[in-house]
């Protein structure tokens, strides 16, 4: 009887162990199921590289290049801001900060990661957006730049914590060896620790960027949501994620618009898949 019970439990455990694989496949399948119909009316090439996103005109034009570029510019801006600051902060926490300060900073970073994106979006709306409008003398502060700044704060906790982990997991002997040769602490960090942790830091950056690309609410609230080809970072843009969030409510189930939003979901899923698999490879490289 006990053996029988244990047999059942162990099978259940195995089943749940496989659940993650099952869910990833399920997500992909359902996105595909709803999104694939779009390509009976529009070619993949036109969907990805066409310049017009007019989902409610007749006939609807469902081409996502403006959205891809919107995501691209916002992400690029956020990356430029968050990578140096994030990696710098990771080095500070891992190597320079006093142990007590280190604990406090790590907790702070964890709390930053926990702030809901809608709250960051709200704060961006009421503080950053008017500021950008004024400083750059623009008709609106809802721009790609505002989005980049806010999203940088969503990327930084990821970058800091993973890069800090990578630095921390370098064997102490590396550091001691370098210091014993008379190198200063900074020279040791720069010439020994950073190269040794490079694959972990690359992974940290990739995952941080991945978080930015997938971010939805903050970006929808502060980038202005104009689905036009962006020419400057000071213009309103609309990202892939914001498009889904903003339009799915209005899209009629089974319409081309609906299919197109799912097709955007497939694009996002594939991007995040590629980023995560690559980052994971980098993370496991050194070990």
């Amino acid at each position: 009887m006990r053996k029988y019970k244990e047999f059942v439990i162990e099978k259940l455990i195995l089943l749940c162990g496989l659940a993650s694989i099952f869910f990833v496949l399920l997500i992909f399948l359902f996105l595909l199921k709803e999104g694939i119909s779009l390509f009976s009316t529009i070619t993949l090439k036109r969907f990805l590289f066409g310049k017009n996103w007019y989902p409610i005109s007749d006939p609807a034009e469902l081409e996502i290049l403006p959205l891809i570029l919107g995501s691209f510019w916002v992400t690029l801006g956020a990356a430029i801001i968050s990578i140096p600051i994030g990696v710098g902060c990771a080095i500070y926490i891992a190597e320079v900060a006093h142990p007590k300060l280190k604990e406090i900073l790590k907790t702070g970073i964890e709390l930053l990661a926990a702030i809901p994106s809608v709250v960051l979006g709200f704060i961006g709306m009421v503080t950053l957006v008017p500021w950008v409008k004024e400083v750059f003398n623009l008709p609106t502060g809802l721009t790609a730049l505002s989005g980049s700044v806010m999203l940088a704060f969503m990327a930084m906790p990821t970058i800091v914590s993973i890069a800090e982990d990578a630095l921390y997991s370098i064997p102490k002997t590396y550091k001691e060896g370098s210091l014993a040769l008379g190198a200063t602490h900074w020279q040791t960090i720069y010439r020994v620790l950073l190269p040794a942790a490079s694959s972990g830091i690359v992974a940290a950056v990739m995952l941080g960027v991945g978080r930015v690309i997938g971010e939805t609410m903050a970006v929808m609230m502060i980038t202005g949501n104009a689905a036009l080809l962006p020419h400057s970072i000071l213009q309103p843009v609309r990202t892939l994620t914001a498009t889904i969030a903003a339009e799915m409510g209005e899209a009629v189930v089974g319409s081309e618009h609906y299919f197109a939003l799912f097709a955007i979901g497939i694009v996002l899923f594939i991007i995040s898949f590629v980023i995560n698999v690559t980052a994971d490879t980098f993370l496991h490289k050194k070990k």
């Binding site: 869910f23 997938g214 889904i244 969030a245 979901g265 995040s272 898949f273 698999v277």
Partner: peptide
Amino acid sequence: IKLAIVNLAGVPSVVYGLFGLA
């Protein structure tokens, strides 16, 4: 399995919304 977990953690939240809807 580990790769699947990493991916599940990385899927954009709005894509979860789409999936849940579908």
